[in-house]
Write a protein that binds this DNA or RNA. Structure first.
Lengths: 157, 157
DNA sequence: CCGTCCGTTTGGAAAACACTGAACGTTGGG
DNA sequence: CCCAACGTTCAGTGTTTTCCAAACGGACGG
């Protein structure tokens, strides 16, 4: 059993962080999340994280507040230790994908409201109708996708 | 033919801007894009925009550089006018939706690379495998969605 | 009741960002 | 040849964000 190079793992965590940063997540928060996906053991204490990622305690607190808030990470209490431990909850990543449906729906709704604000049949509405049709299509299809995933997970139970 | 209240339209444009701002788009750029979806006439000169949106010339230049760069807006030259005119190109919004596929794929790739960096069969890889499966599913399904849209548009031609 | 070990809050430094007015270069009309 | 109009670039300002060190407060062991 070959041991895994820790430097490789931090690189993986940082790669995740870089990608997540493009979605607006702060760098340190992304590093926390990425690290929790690859670390060993899967549950890490604050001091573990400070040591492994060279991030201040303060940043860990704020980052974890967000991650625990979204459910992507859960706090666990390990017996025998008074420290807080954190563990990635991969089941919740599906919620993250599902939440994008809200963004799509919001855009479709916006287009509908815009159309209502003008004469819905006027030539001026052509552009908004295009936008609404596009988002309407994806709203429908993406909702099916999300449903498909959850159903697949349920029947595997 | 009832005339449309211009204040209502700026409100629609601003609503779009607010939504797009949540995706990281600067406020003024979002207002430009929203306005071009509802304005009349559909093609607007820089001075039209300065007047209608109370945005500085400079911001219009930089905002339009981005919007034209993504293809969401196109520059048109109206005969008889030396001014640059901008028009929303709603066909390109589909590209925007398609580009999200890249983000999904990037995440799936990241997970795969992470798995490769560790022993792929180790128990440690469970979390990354979960993530990869999720993104793999959505990568596949979303690609089908995008394809469905383009095919639908092509056969309507 | 004291000292130690936690995590959180606070205050602030540094950097990134959005937006603007003004200066600039270019182009067409007179 | 000059003037006016137009878009771009530049430099500066105010705001927001990210991150940390230090102060703080609570809980447990002795």
């Amino acid at each position: 059993m070959e041991t895994v190079d820790e430097a490789d793992l931090t690189r993986v965590a940082d790669a995740f962080a870089a990608r997540l940063a493009q979605s607006g997540l702060p760098r340190t928060t992304g590093r926390l999340l990425g690290w929790l996906l690859v670390c060993d053991p899967p549950s890490q204490s604050t001091t573990d994280l400070v040591e492994g990622l060279r991030i201040s305690k303060a940043s860990i607190t704020t980052g974890m507040q967000f991650l625990v808030g979204t459910g992507l990470v859960e706090r666990v209490h390990l017996r025998g230790s008074r420290q807080a431990h954190y563990r990635a909850d991969t089941k919740r990543w599906a919620d993250l994908m599902a939440s994008k449906l809200d963004a799509i729906r919001a855009m479709r709704t916006l287009a509908d409201e815009g159309l209502a604000a003008m004469g819905a049949d006027s030539a001026r509405g052509t552009r908004l109708r295009d936008v609404r049709d596009l988002y309407g299509y994806f709203e429908q299809g993406y909702a099916d996708l999300v449903r498909g995933w959850t159903e697949m997970k349920e029947e595997r139970r």
